[in-house]
Design a protein around this nucleic acid. Structure first.
Lengths: 221, 221
DNA sequence: ACCTGAACACCGTTCAAGT
DNA sequence: ACCTGAACACCGTTCAAGT
């Protein structure tokens, strides 16, 4: 049995980067993006706001770290698909569901370009695009289109959830509000928007999302 | 000549929603998203912060209004293309350039889903997708894919510009930093990301962007 | 009807001081 | 090495009071 070599025995409840990130995720999940506050976090961790800065550079660092923890977990799920396109589809859906469960990662993802969370997704997509057999010089464009699309949907879903929370209604009720807003637009100026307003309330986001992925995948072949 | 019918002659410099929005755009263009402050705005307009609230509901309202002003101007440019796909391409490029000139609209766009600025783009895209001859029940999926992709790229470009500004470097210098970061990743875990790191510095964002649009348009036919 | 500006209730971040 | 908590320099928003 290893004895504690230091003089001051470490408490089990001592602060750590991981513990701060876990607490941040809990806070973000329960109270949204505006719920993540150094003061609220400090209270939850039974410490002062300054203590957190010992383990974390700043708020943006904290947010991307929390985001990365979720993304890493999400991508770690074992692949049940076997074809490259199937894996891409599954991967995209896994991200969609993760953002549905943690809307705040949608905005966190887009706010930290080139950072670890985005790179994780980029890499996974890239490996499958290679497996499809896309020519070397076209790989970047393909992967970056997929990534932009996924991030675009993510950000919009996050925004939907955010505004829904603000108005105290759930996601589908919010879409209902948007739909009635669209129906009040000028018929001459906004014919298309009015024509899809009805579809907006009934549609399944998840299905539409994969259709978009398939559209891009279809453009490859 | 029409006489002023009211008793108090209106000053020419009196506050108005439009004047507030113009001042906001100037502030956002010169100092970024964090530069838009009710206090800074009040100073620029030679008034108090409270006065602004008479013409504008809150900061989010102000930001979407400023965003909408830019989007409306951008989409008002006369179409030089004649084919539906050509118009879509031109429209997407116009948005790309607008976001390049005013990076803050990237995040403003995604933060106000279903609002006027997004609907303007949606409508334009929708009309052209109809013109292509996409079946009624597939129109929504197509348009929403295009929109999500455009918004996704927008948000990322905005984020790139934002971080670049924070670090005091320009856009391409920032991409250079990301590129060297990617080259330091583990070769076994991140082969694809490393292989495209070089491409990241040399590529033309604008060209890549249209390639993505074409990929989606290709998936339609 | 429209504007003023002080006041309220917050923020992220820093830093001397403690252990 | 790590933590504390007061203090700094801000925010968005409100609202009594003015014209």
């Amino acid at each position: 049995m290893v004895k504690n070599t230091g003089s001051t025995p470490r408490r089990e409840e001592s602060l750590s980067r991981d513990k701060i990130i876990e607490a941040s995720i809990a806070l973000l999940d329960s109270s949204g993006e505006s719920g993540l506050t150094f003061r609220a976090l400090a209270e939850r961790l039974a410490t002062g706001p300054g203590a957190i800065y010992w383990h974390v550079a700043n708020k943006s660092d904290l947010l991307t770290a929390a985001c990365d923890a979720i993304v890493a977990r999400t991508l770690d799920a074992p692949a049940t698909q076997t074809t490259p396109k199937g894996i891409i589809r599954a991967l995209a859906l896994a991200m969609f569901d993760a953002i549905d469960a943690h809307p705040w990662i949608g905005s966190a993802l887009t706010r930290a370009p080139g950072e670890l969370p985005t790179v994780r997704i980029l890499e996974r997509l890239g490996q499958q695009v290679r497996a499809i057999g896309v020519r070397e010089d076209a790989q970047w464009a393909t992967v970056s289109a997929l990534l932009s699309y996924i991030l675009g949907v993510s950000a919009q879903n996050a925004a939907n959830a955010h505004i829904g929370r603000e108005r105290g209604v759930d996601r589908s009720a919010f879409l209902g509000q948007v739909s009635t807003m669209w129906l009040q637009l000028d018929p001459d100026e906004y014919p298309f928007t009015r024509s899809v307003a009805g579809h907006l309330v009934m549609h399944d986001d998840r299905v539409d999302f994969v259709e978009g992925i398939d559209l891009i995948l279809g453009g490859i072949a």
